[in-house]
Design a binder for these strands. Structure first.
Lengths: 128, 128
DNA sequence: CTCGTTTAATTACATGCGTAATCTTAATTG
DNA sequence: CAATTAAGATTACGCATGTAATTAAACGAG
């Protein structure tokens, strides 16, 4: 069935972010989008793109003499993987300790709190 | 000032967990605690312990012919680092999307929800 | 058709990690 | 005291990753 999650490295995820914002894009555009914010060499960015191709995280469709790249791995799916990994590795798989941690250690904006409350209300609503 | 966070690998964190539960402990005890659950070779566990020493994540006090190991990196601190890393890398540093993600994708137990509500109440209480 | 240019593919190389095996040294036993 | 053991230190080795440089291929310019 081959359900192995695609492992994306840190640097690679930066490339994915660019593609998640817009796709398809030529490598040139991806390079342009990342040069400044990352300070990476153009070659580096192309390497990462290629590795992502190899991993099946992005696809490439020939467009004339170059390729247009699109993400295959969905952002949601990746966030899911990473979150679960944190949860399992660091918080023993239990959500409550993680939430407690965030509430104690991360500055929650008023908006965060409001958002949270809305979420909880919605969840409880759905349960009854 | 040397404020670089100590980077703990996945495997290494398993060793830390043992020390966080109880310290100090001899390597023998640590090995004993991990053999079964991890399936690692004794040598592997000792290697990890040694790497942690090298990283300054644990300390060793000589006790006769062997050492007793204690964690220097605090569990809270590590959870903090890892959480922040996830938040920044995967959720653009914003808490709300992460929480939204968890509420949508992770099964929250009734207890989790209750816990969450309590947290929010406490936070809002403190704010007004 | 040949050259240069642009993009993609291949190769590189140090470091970290997972996973041990080997070597060394200090204490234990006969 | 010599030999054995047990713990720690050193070395190993392949794969992933960060970070590129080198090589090849393909298409447009002349």
């Amino acid at each position: 069935m081959s359900n192995k999650p695609i492992a994306i490295s840190d640097a690679e995820s930066r490339v994915m972010e660019v593609l998640w914002q817009q796709a398809p894009q030529a490598s040139e555009d991806i390079v342009a989008a990342l040069l400044e914010p990352t300070g990476w060499h153009e070659k580096t960015i192309r390497t990462l793109l290629n590795r992502l191709l190899g991993k099946g995280a992005v696809s490439a469709q020939k467009d004339g003499r170059r390729y247009l790249y699109s993400p295959l791995l969905r952002r949601e799916q990746w966030q899911q993987q990473e979150s679960r990994s944190l949860l399992d590795r660091v918080f023993g798989g239990k959500v409550a300790p993680l939430l407690a941690h965030f509430s104690q250690h991360e500055k929650l904006s008023t908006k965060d709190v409001a958002e949270l409350r809305k979420l909880i209300d919605a969840i409880e609503q759905k349960r009854r």
